[in-house]
């Protein structure tokens, strides 16, 4: 995932804080897809995920002076995106309360089309992806966040600890518990 860049993220944000707008564009190009993957796995809705990533990057523009060079830029931007995603999920949950009686249990969280298992490797891969995505969605939020950051975004435990603002030991424990829960839910997939 890490590529070699002329400027580090921290150098770019410093340049942006000093008025270099091109540095902002470079940061956007570096992070938009990474953030999109993270947020999409979190909220399971492409349109909402893109809106959240937009909000995150607008916030980066308007609140650039809030960043202090004591933390990694990536942890800062992931924290913003994660908080916005959580806020959106809470809003979604409140909205859903009014509609629950009109929907079937399967419709509550996701709208995934039915896909046959035995129609080839690609379809099987898509099926597996959907099943994993569905299983991730049913995890509690504090498990969901850490397992996405670790197993999909491949961040270090230390970075995750800073992003979610909980001790390292708690992060490790949550990731382990999340994997156990996912494995339990996806037993029949193997």
């Amino acid at each position: 995932m890490d590529k070699e860049f002329i400027y580090s993220d921290e150098e770019l944000i410093a340049r942006f804080q000093n008025g270099d707008e091109q540095a902002y564009v470079e940061l956007v190009n570096r992070y938009r897809d990474r953030l999109m993957t993270f947020v999409y796995r979190f909220v399971n809705d492409g349109v909402i995920a893109e809106d959240i990533v937009q909000d995150t990057l607008v916030k980066l523009y308007t609140h650039k002076d809030y960043y202090r060079n004591i933390a990694k830029f990536s942890t800062w931007i992931y924290t913003i995106a994660g908080n916005l995603a959580k806020t959106e999920l809470r809003k979604k949950k409140r909205r859903k309360v009014t509609n629950l009686s009109e929907m079937g249990t399967e419709d509550w969280e996701y709208q995934i089309p039915a896909v046959e298992r035995d129609t080839g490797d690609i379809v099987q891969g898509q099926f597996a992806e959907q099943q994993i995505q569905r299983a991730i969605q049913s995890l509690p939020l504090h498990f969901r966040t850490v397992v996405i950051l670790r197993d999909i975004q491949e961040l270090s435990y230390e970075e995750i600890s800073k992003i979610v603002e909980v001790p390292l030991g708690t992060v490790k424990s949550r990731i382990n518990r999340a994997r156990l829960q996912l494995q339990e839910m996806l037993k029949e997939l193997r």
Partner: peptide
């Protein structure tokens, strides 16, 4: 099973913006 799950999660495709 958990090892396999972790590998599958790493292989999940990157979601791109529009």
């Amino acid at each position: 099973s958990i090892r396999s799950l972790m590998k599958s999660m790493k292989k999940l495709p990157e979601v791109r913006t529009s």
